[in-house]
Design a binder for these strands. Structure first.
Length: 745
DNA sequence: TACCCGGAAGACGC
DNA sequence: TGCGTCTTCCGGGT
């Protein structure tokens, strides 16, 4: 034992799903950098620095090295007949099963190396971190906007690891929250800590994380970790525990993702278990053997891989929601109390993970403080997935396709989607709503409820296939969806029951072919927005703008974990502060993006906080029923953009028409001129400013009953549904890295 | 057996 | 208190 080196990560980890972040960021001993460096220097030089690149032989070399260096018990190397990719997919539990007594060590070491590899990639030049580099672990990052993968996808993408790494990357970039998304009710949204990037996926503050045993003694502790979840805490924590316990979610996710991303065939989608059979990762022994702490939420569900998968999604989802909330509320608060943005590193001490406290990895105390200050209980109303259609939209449009194993577009243009994993999706939905007994039957009932209001229809003949009859913008703008019932579903069974819809409330309600086209257009616009966000050089901060606080902190934490002091150190706190301020300043200097908290103005840019470059083709005058929607689309007001319509159009830039809703709020319609459409020339296309005003006036008669453009893209719902808005992951931008470098200097 | 449908009653939040 | 949005349960059909 004397020769045994200090482990890079504590061994007192439970069997929960290894959140790379959590493990490394919150369990690092005081000097991880030096240890890691030492470790790396002693690794056999033949080993690629990126574990994923290891061959089988490399894996064995690595294992032998660990056995030797850490004085581990003898391993059965036959259980590690896998390459580095597969090895990376092994969970802590997997390691534990393969080599009891040494699994934690191996896992931790490996995770450290993965982290290191991450960091190296981040620092690579010409390695834009956002958004194409959102998949730092994925050698073949795919465009986030790719909803349905091309059939000619490279063979590599068939590799389960493709999506697994993607998923893993997500875990890294936006580490899972422990808290399984308590229903986004007031409590959960307002008081649940903005911990997403910091929480241990392992659930509930890593129940039992302080225990060195793989078996957490239950989560009694777990509820603590979830902090203010209130009544939801048990569910949250328990789910987290389950997630953790079923630590194989990631591999399975990867497998599943791969299949789902490359085929929408019934065979591949419909049943989960067969996927497992066909895509078994090299870790068959541990999927259900991790002895999850029995928890209320999942106790009646076999810990199968689907569940694990779901839990993984749940965490991601939860994290998305929290991050969105966090960003929104941060922006709101910043406008009022910018001085409070400085995280006080004198905040209560971060509960040291060493003591086994579950709080530390779950919610650093400084984040609690931040939460208290920045996230008031009375958060602004925000559906954020509280409505089923919104929930589905956000899953479907997730930029990272993180939920493609649960639900995926089948034809995004027409709004047709397929529930890939009904049970998993239902479970996720149930967790979202805190209805833990949710199942697909119940959820589908809710979906059928949408038939009546012409939001959805069933795709005949295809299981689990539904079609949105209204595009996200429509749905978002229709405040009173019940009004949609005015159209009798019976009238339009053929085309989705959308005929003659809802003219009564002034909402243009083209759910028929025109609506589908409108849907298609907006979907395309969303994709274009995403692409533009990725490519636009004049928006260096990307859609992330200055990184959100969690992102900043994530970078700092990552860096601290990989290089520097532990998160509990003042330097770490200072790093976060510095990063944040640095980014704010950077954003200001570079021309703050719309979602720059510091620069955001409450008026026009406010609602657009999630969209850098809103695009516009407004449905001038409501539902014309025209199939050529583009012809009716007129920009109305370009005041936000500060350019004339003609100039904007001439420059092929986007317009920012304003629409005033019934509440008098000015919102922005996000529609873009499609270059590929048979659009008139820019000069023709864009009315003169006077015309715009006239049009706007025509469209916005105060109190008028005349048809208005979609009513009120209300500011209270700053989280649009399109993919560009699903800001689930903590995207680490170049600025963030620069910030970190800056603060390290 | 699973999926799908829709009625009915009720919960829950606003 | 009313309303909207489910949730839950159910019987029936495919």
């Amino acid at each position: 034992m004397s020769k045994m080196k200090m482990l890079p990560v504590q061994l007192s980890l439970n069997s929960l799903n290894p959140g790379i972040w959590s493990d490394v960021l919150w369990r690092c001993p005081p000097a991880p950098s030096s240890q890691l460096a030492e470790l790396k220097t002693q690794l056999p030089p033949s080993l690629p620095s990126d574990p994923r690149l290891w061959s089988r032989e490399d894996v064995l070399v690595f294992l032998r090295f660990c056995v030797r260096e850490f004085d581990l018990p003898k391993l059965d190397f036959d259980l590690f007949q896998m390459n580095g990719k597969a090895l990376c997919l092994l969970t802590r539990a997997d390691f534990g099963h393969r080599c009891p007594g040494a699994g934690d060590v191996l896992h931790n070491v490996l995770q450290m190396l993965i982290i290191e590899s991450h960091m190296m990639q981040w620092h690579l030049p010409n390695s834009p971190v956002t958004p194409t580099s959102r998949y730092p672990l994925s050698p073949q990052s795919h465009p986030p906007t790719m909803t349905w993968p091309p059939l000619n996808a490279p063979p590599e993408s068939n590799n389960p690891f493709h999506n697994t790494t993607h998923h893993l990357a997500h875990h890294f970039m936006a580490p899972n929250s422990v808290t399984l998304s308590p229903p986004p009710s007031v409590d959960s949204q307002a008081s649940s800590p903005p911990q997403a990037p910091y929480q241990n996926q392992n659930g509930g503050g890593a129940p039992g994380s302080g225990s060195s045993s793989a078996h957490t003694s239950n989560g009694g502790s777990s509820s603590v970790g979830t902090s203010n979840s209130g009544p939801s805490a048990p569910a949250s924590s328990s789910s987290g525990s389950s997630t953790a316990s079923n630590g194989s979610a990631m591999p399975m996710k990867g497998i599943s993702s791969a299949s789902s991303n490359h085929s929408d065939s019934e065979e591949e989608y419909s049943v989960s278990e067969p996927k497992m059979a066909t895509g078994m990762p090299p870790a068959p022994l541990s999927y259900s053997t991790a002895s999850p702490p029995s928890t209320p939420i999942l106790k009646d569900i076999k810990p199968n891989w689907t569940q694990q998968l779901t839990n993984s999604f749940v965490n991601s989802w939860s994290q998305q929601q929290q991050q969105q909330q966090q960003q929104q509320q941060m922006q709101a608060v910043q406008q009022q109390q910018p001085q409070k943005l400085t995280l006080d590193n004198t905040a209560g001490p971060v509960v040291a993970p060493a003591g086994g406290s579950i709080s530390a990895p779950t919610t650093p105390s400084y984040m609690y403080k931040a939460k208290r200050e920045f996230f008031p209980e009375n958060s602004e109303p925000n559906t954020n997935g509280r409505l089923l259609w919104d929930f589905l939209q956000q899953l479907l449009n997730d930029r990272n396709q993180k939920y493609s194993d649960l639900i995926a577009w089948k034809c995004r243009d027409t709004g047709v989607f397929k529930i890939v994993d009904p049970a998993g999706l239902a479970k996720l939905w149930g967790i979202q709503k805190n209805h833990l007994s949710m199942n697909y039957d119940k959820m589908s009932r809710a979906l059928r409820y949408y038939y009546r209001v012409n939001i959805l229809r069933k795709v005949q003949g295809e299981r689990h296939c539904y079609q949105f009859l209204r595009n996200p913008t429509e749905l978002k703008n229709i405040k009173n969806i019940s009004l949609l019932r005015q159209s009798t579903p019976a009238a339009g069974a053929g085309n989705g029951g959308a005929q003659g819809m809802t003219q009564g409330n002034g909402n243009p309600a083209p759910s028929s072919p025109a609506a589908v086209q409108n849907w298609s257009q907006q979907q395309q616009q969303q994709q274009q927005q995403q692409q533009q966000q990725q490519q636009s050089p004049q928006r260096p901060a990307s859609r992330n703008g200055p990184m959100s606080l969690p992102a900043v902190a994530a970078v700092a934490a990552a860096a601290a974990a990989a290089y520097g002091p532990p998160p509990t150190s003042p330097l770490f706190m200072h790093a976060i502060n510095g990063a944040f301020h640095y980014l704010s300043a950077t954003a200001a200097a570079a021309g703050a993006p719309p979602n720059s908290p510091a620069l955001q103005t409450p008026g026009a840019a406010g609602p657009d906080k999630f969209q850098f470059h809103p695009l516009k083709l407004e449905n001038g005058g409501g539902s014309s029923g025209s199939d050529s929607a583009g012809e009716d689309l007129k920009p109305t007001d370009l005041s936000v953009s500060g350019k004339s319509a003609a100039a904007a159009a001439a420059s092929n830039e986007d317009c920012y028409p304003l629409i005033r809703n019934a509440d008098g709020l000015t919102t922005i319609k996000l529609i873009r001129y499609n270059d590929h459409q048979s659009a008139p020339s820019p000069a023709e296309q864009s009315p003169k400013p006077e015309e715009q005003q006239q049009q706007q006036q025509q469209q916005l008669p105060a109190g008028s009953n005349s048809p208005k453009p979609m009513e009120a893209s209300d500011q209270a719902q700053p989280v649009p549904m399109d993919s560009s808005d699903c800001n689930g992951s903590v995207e680490v931008s170049e600025e963030a890295l620069a910030a970190f470098r800056h603060m390290r200097q």
